[in-house]
Amino acid sequence: MDFAFSSEQDMLRTAAREFLAEQHPLTGLPAIIDGEPGWRPDSWKQLADLGWTDDELTLLDQVVLFEETGAALLPAPLFSTIALALPAIRHDKDLVASVASGELKLSLAWAESGRPQGIADTGLATTVDADGRVTGRKVLVPDATFADALVVTVAGPELRLVRTADATVTPLSTSDRSRRLSEVEFDAAPSQALGDGSVLGEIENRAFVLAAAEALGVGRRALEDGIAHASTREQFGRVIGTYQAVSHQLVDAYADLELARSLTYWAAWALAEGDEQADVAVAAAKTAATEAAVTACERSIQVHGGVGMTWEHILHRLYKRAQWLEAFGASGRALRAKIADSVIG
C-alpha cells in the first residue's frame, strides 16, 4: 500500500505552482477572460515547452498538474486538448507530436441537442459520408474558439478530426468565462478518420478524473481565501475565525476536499492500472470532488459576507468553474446510479 507521489511528481507540482503564480496570477485573470479572445494564445507555446501537452505524462502526473491549473483557473484549452481529445488521436504519432510541440490545440465535440449528452452516449445525428465529409450540429463544445481542430463523434459511432476553420463555431455566453462553450455547425466539412467509438469510455473516465483534479484545486483555492478572510476580518472586536459558526464551516470544506482528494488519487491509480474497480472509483471521485469544490466555494462566499457576492471578488470565478465541473459529463445523481448498480446490483 503506497499512496506517495514520486519525487518527479512532487517537482511537477512545485514547478507548476510557481509558474502559474508568476505567469498566470488569479488577480490578472478577470481582465483576460472578460475580454477577447478570452485567453492569451501566446502562452500556449510556454505550456508546451513545460511539457504539459506531452503524451508522456501519466494520468497521475496529469492529476498533479490539473489540480494546479484548476486552482489558477488557467484559461487555456489544456483540459480540452489533454483530457478530452488526446486519447482519440493517440494512435497517430504525427498528431501527438503536433500537440506536444504546441502546434495543435484540440477539443471534443460530442453533445447534440435533444439527445443523451454523455461523452460515451451513442445514437448520434451527426454523420460522415463516404468522402469523409461531416455534417451535423454539436452543442456545448468546450474551448472550441481556442482549438485548431475538433475531435467529433459521429453516427457509427466513429471519431473524426475536423479543422475548426472548416466548421462554423458560434461562441455562447458562458457563466464560467474561463471555460467557454460553443455551438459548432458542420456542413460537409472535410475530416480525418480517427477510429471507432471504443475509446469514448476511456475518454470519459480520464476526463472525469482530471475534472476531479481541477475541482480539488478550485476548492482548495476557495478555502484558502475563506481562511485568509476569517483570519483578518474583525467584527464585535474579534477576528471572525474565532467564532465557531464561521470556523466550523471551513473545517467541513477542508474535510470534504481531503476525502475527495483520496478518492481522486485512488481513481487515477485504478484507471491507469486497469483495476476492476476503476469505473466506480472514477464515478465516486468525479461526483465527490466536484461537489466538494462547489460547497467549498459556497462556504467561502458565506464566510466573506457581502464582499463574496461582488463581481470584483475572485470567488465567483472559482464558484462558476466548480459548477462547470460538477455539471460536466454526468450529474452526481447519474454517477451514483452507476455506483448503486455496481454495489447493490
Binding site: I227, A230, S231, Y243, S247, H248, L250, V251
Partner: peptide, 14 residues
C-alpha cells in the same frame, strides 16, 4: 472541529 480549525487550517484560537 476546533482542533482542525486551529491546528490544520491555522485559524485563530476560539
Amino acid at each position: 472541529r476546533n482542533i482542525v480549525a486551529e491546528r490544520v487550517l491555522g485559524l485563530p484560537r476560539s
